[in-house]
Amino acid sequence: MEHYSLKINGHVYETGAEPFESLLDVLREKLRLTGSKKGCDEGECGSCTVLLDGKPVLSCILMVSDVRDREVLTVEGLPQGGEPHPIQVEMTERGGIQCGYCTPGIIMSAYALLQENPRPSEDEIRFAIAGNICRCTGYSKIVEALQAAAGTPIR
């Protein structure tokens, strides 16, 4: 067991962990940040997506020892001043959420996109969430919600 101090959502978290434990397991089981979901645990589904130094990564296939001295952002870190992020609001109001299990991962992929490209086209949105599997919605409502969050016209 090693000691880690991790920068997550602007706070420093201290925890013990084995170096080979995944960032996802440490977030969920040790730090109790359970917003990031485990759909496959092998880098296929995107439900564990978090941002590492601003880039979307799959936290289930990232070892905790790899994130020392780096900035992690999870879905819990998006609201500002107690207000949900516009992506969270639009996903809620435009039917982008059914069972909700893919939702945090989708939101993090979308957030990373809008940081880089605030006015993405529909194709760019679809490409940005191509690594996030949603089994419920059929994606259309998600894309519409993300277009609304970006303030781009919806189809």
Binding site: G35, Q88, P104
Partner: peptide, 8 residues
């Protein structure tokens, strides 16, 4: 839905 969007 909002709770799901917030990850709580």
């Amino acid at each position: 839905a909002l709770d799901k969007a917030l990850g709580i």
